[in-house]
Design a protein around this nucleic acid. Structure first.
Length: 724
RNA sequence: GGGCGGUUAGCUCAGUUGGUAGAGCAAUCGCUUUACACGCGAAAGGUCACAGGUUCAAGUCCUGUACCGCCCACCA
């Protein structure tokens, strides 16, 4: 027995050594796996954003994926776990912009496009390196030789190819619409990137002018200089006589022309029952404007400043203009009511900027537009048949081709799809995939390469980061090239990710893959919950309650951290973690170590390769082990990792260590040779099988022990056969 | 406003087709017993949120109520 078993288990010394051993074995790469590994099993890693460092949520994802991969590898699958990182457009650029603002007091416009992109790339490279080393600390057995980046050259070709295809199919179009404009980030964002914050607001009721017949209410009086109509409910008896009439007024120095229209959307009971329609600065108003042919008057610019008015408001910020207009209303005796209300305001997820709805010319993906699908393996949609992107997204999940775990998330998914509108994909930022469209005067060219002739200017915008991550499962396998990898490993087996990006990402992957390949990106989606602190609070810098996964690994060992993240952690449910929890499982790693010490120190002189006659008592224990193996295997196969981990923990500690080992002491220290040999063989047998069962959960300590076991024909534990 | 979860031992959570309530941690008591004090043994702890219903039988199925959490919409 190696002397190191006389001391407690030391993860800090062991883990880097073991990871190196695995990497050098080449077995992370499925091409190097032994003959028996035939059936492919694929997980493509959700690429972490290159915005900094990994948090404990990443650690959870990596642990679950590594668990599945290691289990399937031992089961004899040709396992590919493909790693990568995400350029994360807005998130990364805005982070770097903040730094530059802080350190140099410069904006991106001061630096210019080239310099900014250069800076962002440098930052991204640094983040990338940190993330990769952290991923290795977690023990991730992914194939580094296939590592990808959402913004590298191959992925860029995939992006350009898909863009052109969708453009040619009429699914990508350029349109003038009300979009979510982020004045802080100076870009549009999609509906999904808008987050709501509750704030106190004032709800004002007033008339545009003294002779105007109808009072209206709003929380944003400054937008009223852009009103072109007042809408009332068609059945509202109070306003019948005004319907269809038009009025001129001067509102805080701005001449406005108002038509009285009707719309069923108007709530008679709310406010005065009359709605001032501002087509340029509200989505609903825009639609009313379209229906009624109302003029669109933009009164707020990209910096959220007033574009119209006299010296009182022109050029002022909207919030300042609001106060000025309210003062004016009061002085003119037009203000009838001022109420305090709670209001949800829209903010940009990444920059925190207050969203200003603006009419802008942008690129969109049409989710409801019919097109002929070129090739389809999707149940319910035939090749060549007319369908829509929305229909693809619905069908794939409805018919069970893609199975979401836990299944109640199906409902959330369908609910979201029902309400889904066209997806705004153009961003006015510089870090990302440039839109593959060129202009020359009024001409427009869309292609994977720039047109050869002179005089074409490429679209300034980049694509929403989710456009490229939507293609992740197949772009990482080399598509659009016809690669062997793509042929072998697509569709992938499992996508493991957090439930909060079900819409952002999972749905977009299904959309992209359905459209491009007529197929599913993955057979299963395993959604884990959010990791919270011991009190159930979100982890955040301001609360200072962050748990750093690498620090935990250093303190307690990665194995302890990994199994903490798995035990009692059910899919789709938020999970509370604390140092105390991890500490408990550090003891477990040590227990495994000590059991090994006992077993090894008591088989001196015994040949573990020769199975002796097994006495009835030991046979019963072996049968019990086999039952446990079956049980745990079934749990893992059915994605109940929380249960499998608890069972192996319980079996090892409270059955093997507490009972079997204790009972073995009498025969081992006794004189009955037959009973002794039987007990020696049995404890050894249970130990090696337990190590196999434990390996996907706690890979380091198990591999380290495995290397010190005396039996013949040993391989690395990571490629040993899963017991049956 | 619409939707989805949750409510089980002090805490964190399991409980897979309905069949006498489980684990870990914490707390209690006792142990330096020949692998391990990062340990061992023992005992303790629950009208399974509430009210109805189905059933021979309900933590589990159905209906309703209350509270907590999350997602979506955004009444202008």
């Amino acid at each position: 027995m190696n002397d190191k078993f006389l001391k407690p288990y030391d993860p800090l010394e062991t883990e880097p050594k073991i990871y190196k051993l695995w990497e050098e074995s080449g077995y992370f790469n499925p091409d190097n796996l032994p003959e028996r590994h035939k059936t492919p099993y694929t997980i493509v890693m959700p690429p972490p954003n290159v915005t900094g460092i990994l948090h404990v949520g990443h650690a959870l994802g990596l642990t679950l994926q590594d668990l599945m991969i290691r289990y399937q590898r031992m089961q004899g699958k040709k396992t590919l776990w493909l790693p990568g990182t995400d350029h994360a457009g807005i998130a990364t650029q805005s982070k770097v912009e903040k730094e530059i603002k802080k350190n140099e007091n410069k904006s991106r416009f001061d630096l210019g496009r080239e310099e900014l992109v250069h800076r962002v790339e440098a930052f991204a490279k640094q983040s990338h390196d940190t993330i990769i080393s952290q991923t290795k600390v977690m023990g991730a057995s992914c194939d580094w030789s296939r590592e990808a980046f959402t913004l590298d050259e191959k992925r860029n070709l995939a992006v350009r190819t898909v863009f052109k295809q969708m453009y040619d199919d009429g699914l990508i179009y350029r349109g003038h619409r009300i979009v979510n404009w982020d004045p802080k980030g100076q870009t549009t964002i999609s509906d999904d990137e808008v987050v709501y914050e509750e704030r106190d607001a004032k709800f004002y009721t007033f008339k545009y002018s003294k002779d105007f017949p109808i009072s209206i209410s709003t929380t944003r009086p400054e937008t009223k200089v852009g009103d072109t109509a007042v809408a009332v409910h068609p059945d509202d008896t109070r306003y019948q006589e005004y319907i269809g009439k038009e009025y001129d007024a001067v509102f805080c120095g701005v001449p406005i022309h108002i038509k009285i229209i009707t719309d069923k959307e108007v709530d008679k009971e709310f406010g005065t029952g009359a709605l001032g329609v501002t087509p340029a600065h509200s989505k609903i108003d825009w639609e009313m404007g379209q229906k009624n042919n109302l003029p669109v008057v933009q009164v707020i610019d990209e910096k959220a400043r007033m574009m119209v008015g006299d010296e009182r408001i022109l050029g002022k910020k909207t919030t300042e203009a609001r106060d000025i207009i309210v003062e004016w209303l009061k002085s003119e005796n037009l203000l009838e009511k001022e109420e305090s209300v709670k209001q949800n305001i829209s903010t940009a997820e990444r920059t925190g900027g207050i969203i200003e709805p603006l009419p802008k010319l942008q690129w969109f993906i049409a989710v409801n537009k019919p097109f002929k699908i070129k090739n389809s393996n999707i149940t319910g949609i035939k090749t060549g048949e007319e369908t829509t992107l929305k229909e693809i997204m619905t069908n794939v999940v409805k018919n069970g081709q893609t199975n979401i775990i836990p299944d109640y998330f199906n409902k959330t998914y369908f609910h979201w799809i029902e309400k889904l509108g066209d997806w705004c994909i153009s961003r006015q930022i510089w870090y990302g995939h440039r839109i593959p469209v060129w202009y020359k005067g009024t001409e427009l060219y869309c292609g994977t390469e720039a047109p050869k002739e002179d005089g074409w200017i490429q679209d300034e915008d980049t694509l929403d980061t989710w456009f490229s991550s939507g293609m992740w499962t197949f772009s990482t396998l080399g598509w659009p090239e016809k690669t062997k990898d793509f042929e072998i490993y697509h569709p992938t087996d499992v996508l493991e990710t957090a439930y909060d990006i079900l819409f952002f990402w999972v749905a977009r992957m299904i959309l992209m893959t359905g459209y491009v390949l007529g197929d599913i990106p993955f057979k299963n989606v395993y959604l884990h919950g959010m990791v919270r602190d011991a009190k159930g609070r979100k982890m955040s810098k301001s609360l200072g309650n962050n748990i750093d996964p690498v620090e935990m690994s250093t303190k307690f060992g990665t194995d302890a951290e990994r199994i903490t993240l798995i035990v009692a952690n059910t899919p789709g449910t938020d999970f509370k973690i604390s140092e105390d929890k991890i500490r408990g499982y550090k003891n477990f790693a040590n227990k495994i170590w000590n059991v090994t010490r006992f077993v090894l120190s008591n088989i001196e002189g015994f040949d573990v390769n020769e199975k002796p006659e097994i006495v009835a008592e030991n046979q019963k224990q072996i049968d019990e082990l086999n039952e446990t193996i079956k049980d745990i295997t079934k749990d893992i196969d059915e994605y109940r990792f929380y249960m499998a981990s608890e069972k192996i923990y319980h079996y090892f500690w409270h059955n093997f260590a507490d009972i079997i080992i204790e009972q073995s002491k009498a025969p081992i220290f006794g004189t009955d040779e037959k009973a002794k040999k039987s007990a020696q063989w049995t404890t050894y047998h249970i130990l090696i099988n337990s190590l196999k069962l434990l390996h996907p959960f706690m890979p380091f300590v198990t591999e380290e022990i495995w290397g010190n076991l005396p039996h013949k024909n040993k391989k690395l534990l990571m490629i040993e056969e899963w017991p049956a």
